[in-house]
Write a protein that binds this DNA or RNA. Structure first.
Lengths: 126, 126
DNA sequence: AGATAATATTCAAAAGGATGAATATAATAC
DNA sequence: GTATTATATTCATCCTTTTGAATATTATCT
């Protein structure tokens, strides 16, 4: 019996809630780890662990810039898989929070330069 | 963090070599368990175990006819997932043995009525 | 250099999935 | 009824994955 090594390896990397969530966030382009941390609300080390799995599966690549490390998708075809899965799972609407996430990375700081009146805690909620 | 319960459930059902092989065989339409057994060359009980997983995931339905139980796909959308996965995994060619599989079910017996000169053992080989 | 910020890795315990072996069920034939 | 054929289920063991906790690394700032 042929044992589909590549397919299984790929599916294994996908079969995990936090990893699915990370991939969904990265649809919008590269993000730093602290951004993922803010968006998912889980420990940083945990996110790094899941990023490692996705990196080892050849789906992500990282890029260091000063203190921050930015991750991005290098196999965009992954989204045809995820779209097909989402289609089957029902609920085809985007379920990502569209709430602007703010973390400490330079990108976020810059984006929010003109919103200093909004308390940071409120930006992460809901 | 949203935990993608449906997506993970579906992906879990797929992430297994024997189950992928079964789904590939069932692309061609419903088959009895003994057919899958002949095609995959593994124990019957093992196949039943994997069929149970696919059934519990809502992908398959069975139909009894005398001694034999025939399984068929009831969520054909699964193949858009599998096609996308196969695409990413490379090797887009069909890798199924196109060798005619012969088992003891009525379907197979009928198909081979006029081939009595060919020893059955040879039909399963290669 | 030391302090701090962001991220990564290692390790161990717990949970979950895979598999073989044995046995159970269901339908048919005699 | 018993025997036989096809398929299903249960159980125990092994193996892998998940997760938390602690620690390490890398870069920047002073």
């Amino acid at each position: 019996m042929y044992d589909y090594p590549e397919e299984v390896k790929l599916l294994k990397a996908l079969t995990h809630p936090a990893r699915l969530a990370i991939l969904e966030i990265l649809r919008g382009g590269e993000e730093c780890v602290c951004h993922l941390e803010a968006a998912l609300g889980v420990r940083q080390a945990y996110i790094s662990q899941q990023l490692m799995v996705l990196r080892d599966a050849g789906l992500l690549q990282d890029r260091r810039e000063g203190w921050n490390v930015y991750y991005r998708i290098i196999r965009p075809e992954i989204y045809s898989v995820l779209d097909a899965v989402r289609q089957m799972a029902g609920m085809p609407e985007a379920r990502l929070t569209l709430t602007p996430i703010v973390c400490t990375c330079p990108n976020c700081k810059e984006e929010n330069t003109h919103q200093v009146n909004i308390p940071v805690e409120l930006l992460n909620v809901r």
